Amino acid sequence: MTLEEYKKQFTDDDAVGWLEIDKEFERLYPGQEPKHYAPAISYMLGGDNPLDGVSVYEKKQTDHFHFITYGFSELYYDEEKVAGEFSKWGFELTFRLKPFEKDNGNPSWAIALLQNIAKYVFSSGKWFEEYHFMPANGPIRLDTNSEITALVFVEDPEIPKKQTPHGEVSFLQIVGITNAEYESILENPGTAEALVNKLKENNPLLITDLNRK
């Protein structure tokens, strides 16, 4: 997209990148109004949380919550960012979570988890790509008796990477893995893809289940 086309199509008031993300989720969940979590004070105004928001959809067919972040990519109208190779960090994170009894239908801890990953990226300048992995230094849901203590990053099975007016955006899904699985790929990082493929055999959408052993 050229700068001229961009100026014709959008105005200062348009959240250009945000709308691009919404398009993908409207395609997946037609007519569904997601729950949206936004920090009380935005990062631009000095708040602690780098993400401008996280939306949560419910996928009825396979009973899980599907989270999407807003903030790793360029969200707002910005003529200087037109036709870049990557939109800001070049990705947004997604997460699929099987409902967990203790959440009572409100898995707000997952929002904090996504914001913490954003804090790491924004402060360290290090970004994620498919088959990267990281420890959570304990269960990913704090104070929970769960063997899921680490994360691996994969491309979201239902949302391909896309070209936006600000550049490429991939949708990287975080997938909870057990301590044993983490130790095994830590020892041999080349096996991360094989682990993901094995998990996909019984769980094609790679939904995180905190009760998985």
Rank of each mutant, 00 (worst) to 15 (best):
N188Q: 12
S170P: 11
A194L: 11
R141C: 13
L186A: 10
I177P: 04
K162S: 10
A112E: 09
V175H: 02
F171H: 02
E193S: 13
P139Q: 06
G138M: 10
N145T: 12
H132Q: 06
S124M: 07
S170K: 08
N137F: 12
I117D: 05
A118E: 01
V154I: 09
Y131W: 14
G190N: 11
E130Q: 03
I117L: 13
N179W: 12
L195S: 00
S123V: 13
P135W: 00
P135M: 01
W127G: 08
T149I: 08
P189C: 10
F128D: 02
A194E: 15
E183V: 14
L172Y: 04
N203Q: 13
E183Q: 14
G176N: 04
V196W: 03
I148H: 03
A112I: 08
E129H: 14
H132I: 02
I177S: 02
E147Y: 09
T149V: 02
E147I: 11
K126M: 06
E181G: 05
K119I: 13
G167V: 01
K200W: 05
E130I: 11
Q173K: 01
A118H: 02
P135Y: 09
V154C: 03
R141M: 13
L142M: 13
L151R: 01
Y131F: 15
Q163N: 15
I174L: 15
H166A: 07
D156L: 13
T149R: 02
G167C: 03
W127D: 09
E183A: 12
Y131G: 05
P139V: 06
I117K: 01
V169G: 06
Y120K: 09
T144Q: 06
E193W: 05
I111T: 12
N197A: 13
N197K: 15
L151K: 10
K126G: 04
T144M: 12
L151T: 04
A118V: 04
K162H: 04
T191I: 07
E147K: 05
E181V: 04
L199C: 11
I117F: 10
S123D: 14
N137K: 09
T178Q: 08
F133E: 01
M134Y: 00
A192Y: 08
G138H: 07
Y120P: 06
I117S: 00
K119M: 12
G176M: 11
F153S: 00
A180Q: 07
F122T: 07
T144H: 15
L186T: 12
E158S: 08
F133Y: 13
V121F: 10
L113R: 02
L151I: 07
F153N: 03
E187S: 14
K161M: 12
Y182A: 10
K126P: 03
